[in-house]
Computed example of a mutant assay.
Amino acid sequence: MVQNLGCREILIQSFDNDGTGNGLDLKLLELIPDGLLTVPLIFAGGIGKSEHMLTGLSHPRIDAVCTANLLNFINHGLVNARKRLKLSNF
């Protein structure tokens, strides 16, 4: 429905995982039928380390990830995430 209203991207955020740093709740993807989305999907909620970002960015159904916890509350989170993503060619 939101795609038909002109939405250019969709952000899915796990409120259960938000702020935990335990990783993305990829089970939420099971609620979205394959091929349904024609706009980019951004995933958020639970990213606590750069490996969580890589997991999301490597998933074929996820176009981008969003985090605040890692970048704002984890010491050197931004620096470490940038290094890790660069090493992984992202």
Rank of each mutant, 00 (worst) to 15 (best):
L71H: 09
G77P: 04
N80K: 14
N80Q: 13
L11H: 04
K86S: 13
R61L: 14
I74V: 15
N4Q: 14
L70D: 00
L11V: 11
G6M: 13
G48T: 04
A68P: 02
V65L: 07
C7L: 14
K86I: 06
K49E: 05
H76W: 10
I74R: 07
K27S: 15
E51T: 02
N4W: 09
G56F: 02
Q13D: 14
G46K: 11
G35W: 14
Q13R: 10
G48A: 05
L5I: 02
L37T: 05
L29W: 12
K49M: 02
V65N: 06
H59D: 05
G19V: 03
S50T: 11
C7I: 12
R82M: 13
L57F: 08
F90I: 14
N89D: 14
L31E: 12
N72F: 14
G6W: 13
L24D: 00
S58P: 02
L71G: 03
I12D: 01
A81N: 06
P33W: 07
N22V: 00
A44S: 15
L28I: 06
L71W: 13
G21T: 01
G6S: 13
I62C: 10
L71T: 06
F43L: 13
L41H: 11
G48Y: 03
T38D: 07
N17V: 00
G21A: 01
F43H: 09
D63M: 11
L28N: 04
L71V: 08
L85G: 05
T38C: 07
G45S: 08
